[in-house]
Amino acid sequence: GVRVRALYDYDGQEQDELSFKAGDELTKLGEEDEQGWCRGRLDSGQLGLYPANYVEAI
């Protein structure tokens, strides 16, 4: 996976979405899909989806 850092807070709206705060680091686990979602893993171990444009590569 690729380490990325959140640029903005994001509150997951669905069960399969991650929630994070600006500045949090997570691991991107795949390329974004056509809707702009990426699969990732928080350092807590939680897996889920997040909007790709909310993070930057570290």
Rank of each mutant, 00 (worst) to 15 (best):
L49D: 08
F20W: 00
Q13H: 13
Y50R: 01
G12K: 15
E56K: 08
Q13F: 09
R3N: 03
Q46E: 09
D33K: 06
T27P: 01
S19P: 02
Q46T: 14
G48H: 00
E56F: 04
Q13M: 08
L47C: 14
E14G: 15
E17L: 12
Y50V: 11
W37H: 14
E17H: 14
A6E: 01
N53R: 13
K21N: 05
E31Q: 14
T27C: 12
A57C: 10
R3Y: 02
Q15T: 08
F20Y: 03
R41H: 04
E25T: 13
K21S: 09
L29S: 03
S44W: 04
Q46M: 11
K21R: 12
Y54K: 15
L7Y: 04
Y10P: 03
C38F: 02
Y50N: 01
L7E: 03
G1S: 10
D16L: 13
D9C: 06
W37T: 05
D43W: 06
E56Q: 09
G48M: 00
V55W: 00
G1D: 03
S44I: 03
L47R: 13
R5I: 15
D9G: 07
A22T: 12
S44C: 15
Q35N: 10
R5A: 07
L42K: 06
L49E: 08
D43I: 07
N53M: 15
A57S: 14
Q46S: 09
K28N: 12
A57Y: 06
R41V: 11
K28A: 12
L18W: 03
K21M: 10
W37N: 14
D43P: 07
E31I: 10
E17T: 13
A52L: 04
L18M: 06
P51N: 05
R3Q: 07
L42W: 00
A52V: 11
S19Q: 04
D43L: 07
T27W: 09
L26T: 00
D9Q: 05
E56N: 09
D24A: 10
D33G: 11
N53L: 15
G12M: 08
D43A: 12
E25R: 08
A6K: 01
P51G: 02
G30S: 12
S44E: 08
G30Y: 06
G45L: 03
G40L: 00
V2E: 15
I58M: 08
G12A: 12
N53A: 08
G45M: 04
